[in-house]
Lab assay of single mutants.
Amino acid sequence: MEVVDPQQLGMFTEGELMSVGMDTFIHRIDSTEVIYQPRRKRAKLIGKYLMGDLLGEGSYGKVKEVLDSETLCRRAVKILKKKKLRRIPNGEANVKKEIQLLRRLRHKNVIQLVDVLYNEEKQKMYMVMEYCVCGMQEMLDSVPEKRFPVCQAHGYFCQLIDGLEYLHSQGIVHKDIKPGNLLLTTGGTLKISDLGVAEALHPFAADDTCRTSQGSPAFQPPEIANGLDTFSGFKVDIWSAGVTLYNITTGLYPFEGDNIYKLFENIGKGSYAIPGDCGPPLSDLLKGMLEYEPAKRFSIRQIRQHSWFRKKHPPAEAPVPIPPSPDTKDRWRSMTVVPYLEDLHGADEDEDLFDIEDDIIYTQDFTVPGQVPEEEASHNGQRRGLPKAVCMNGTEAAQLSTKSRAEGRAPNPARKACSASSKIRRLSACKQQ
């Protein structure tokens, strides 16, 4: 084909351009004929944790799935940006308080904090938690009735009371019990989460009196709706648990309003109706937990002794299953770290194939690490110290990083047969305790 000078094309009309061969290198194709290559998922490591896909996002930050490269346990990490926390009232204080509380709590029905990582340079905090497959609110939203069968609701409620009793025994008032803060594992274990607005009572406090509340409006008791200066913290949790039980068994809320002012007005009056299909035992329990006067409201001991709580409820309806993943529609909620794991395991070791967030990740503290002497050669063979940054567990980050890069360049065919977990650990520049 004859090559045409581009400067001469402006002298031709459209018809003349076609005659000189423009149609031979300008093609129009339908979008259905285009085959897009999927974007390669680059592996990203935060300390010893391999990052997966997004699980959810809230006002405080994002939650992603991660894999512990040492234990191969599935975890969830809450990623918090200090810049964003400053824009939220009491944001930083709530996060630090939640970390302090979770560090000393150990119960099967309370979410466990596994690790805390802090990135000084990017001003990011990573709260590594045990993995929960789904939230209770997500399960309720997945069915038209917006409720659980009585047998399933009873099982979840009993676990909620177990976890709540443990928190109260530790002198902690949750203040925000609701389905949105109750998570579930694949085995059906309920976990109380989000202790950001919780309050730890003084060890020598005479009672459970509280003065502040930041919980969700629909789950607040009349004493808070009416603006009382002080109130019983434990009875606030009992009320919120009662509203939660009402919601998961009926699909409704005892109090509603077009806006928060109308909602608080209705809560302050204390008038509500219980659907007739709840039955006398459940209705009596709800009335005891939603008692207007805090002094007359049920205690956890009274809830445990109630006939509806103690009764064994046979399954009359099919239980609400864990819904498919909202993004991938995966009904099994498979591990989202698998594509990243395959990338590390299947590809040659190259620095361009993975990302390490930083050479140094500070753990379990908000301060910069200490310094240790770096050896410097002298005339008599002895070495003197220069400062060298280290990880919180004493690992020399720069030395590990250099060693990792040197190993990656060394030709050794046997290394390709290593397991995925050992490869992740070798790529991680800074081991965590």
Results as ranks from 00 to 15, higher is better:
Gly279Ala: 06
Tyr362Glu: 06
Gly47Val: 02
Cys134Ala: 07
Asp229His: 02
Pro323Leu: 05
Glu342Phe: 07
Gly346Pro: 15
Met22Pro: 13
Thr250Pro: 00
Glu407Asp: 14
Leu190Pro: 01
Glu374Thr: 13
Leu201Gly: 03
Leu50Met: 04
Asp327Gly: 06
Ile260Ala: 02
Leu386Ile: 07
Leu182Ser: 03
Gln382Trp: 06
Arg28Leu: 03
His168Gln: 05
Met18Arg: 04
Ser419Ala: 11
Gly61Val: 03
Pro179Met: 02
Arg425Asn: 15
Leu160Arg: 00
Ile424Met: 11
Pro89Arg: 04
Met125Asp: 03
Leu184Ser: 03
Leu54Val: 03
His107Tyr: 01
Gly135Val: 10
Arg333Pro: 15
Leu54Ala: 05
Gly58Met: 01
Asn259Ala: 00
Lys62Asp: 15
Met392Tyr: 06
Phe234Gly: 10
Asp68Pro: 06
Gly394Asp: 10
Leu105Met: 08
Ala225Pro: 09
Leu55Cys: 12
Glu317Arg: 14
Ile99Trp: 03
Gly385Asp: 10
Leu400His: 11
Ser271Pro: 01
Leu184Val: 06
Lys178Glu: 00
Gly56Tyr: 00
Pro319Gly: 13
Ala398Phe: 07
Pro149Arg: 02
Lys41Gln: 05
Pro254Trp: 05
Asp350Val: 08
Leu183Ala: 03
Gly381Trp: 06
Arg383Gly: 07
His202Val: 09
Pro281Ala: 04
Leu400Asp: 08
Tyr36Ala: 03
Lys41Phe: 07
Gln214His: 11
Ala377Thr: 14
Gln7Pro: 04
Arg75Phe: 07
Lys84Pro: 13
Pro221Arg: 01
Gln159Pro: 04
Gly215Asn: 12
Ala398Cys: 10
Val143Leu: 08
Leu50Trp: 02
Ile88Gly: 03
Gln137Glu: 02
Asn119Ile: 13
Ser378Gly: 05
Phe366Cys: 07
Glu357Ile: 14
Asp30Cys: 12
Tyr253Gly: 04
Arg86Val: 11
Ile79Tyr: 00
Lys44Ala: 14
Leu282Ala: 04
Val143His: 12
Met51Thr: 08
Met11Thr: 09
Lys191Ser: 08
Ala273Ile: 12
Arg297Val: 00
Pro321Asp: 13
Leu9Asn: 15
Phe354Arg: 13
Lys178Phe: 02
Tyr166Gly: 09
Thr250Tyr: 10
Pro326Ala: 04
His202Arg: 01
Ser325Trp: 03
Pro294Thr: 07
Cys151Leu: 02
Met289Leu: 04
Pro323Met: 14
Asn119Tyr: 07
Glu293Leu: 05
Gly279Arg: 04
Asn393Val: 03
Lys416Thr: 11
Asn266His: 09
His345Ser: 08
Ala295Leu: 04
Glu375Arg: 12
Gln7Ala: 06
Val368Thr: 14
Lys124Ala: 07
Gly135Cys: 13
Glu120Leu: 11
Gly279Met: 05
Gly346Ile: 08
Thr230Pro: 07
Arg415Val: 14
Cys134Glu: 12
Tyr118Trp: 02
Leu101Tyr: 08
Cys134Phe: 02
Lys84Cys: 15
Arg86Asp: 15
Thr328Ser: 11
Glu342Tyr: 11
Ala273Lys: 03
Pro369Leu: 07
Glu138Leu: 07
Ile46Gly: 04
His313Val: 02
Leu190Ser: 01
Ala389Tyr: 07
Asp348Arg: 08
Leu341Met: 15
Glu293Arg: 02
Ile35Leu: 07
Arg103Val: 04
Leu140Gly: 00
Asp176Cys: 00
Thr209Cys: 07
Cys391Ile: 06
Ser232His: 10
Ala76Gln: 02
Ser334Phe: 07
Leu45Trp: 15
Lys44Met: 03
Leu113Asp: 00
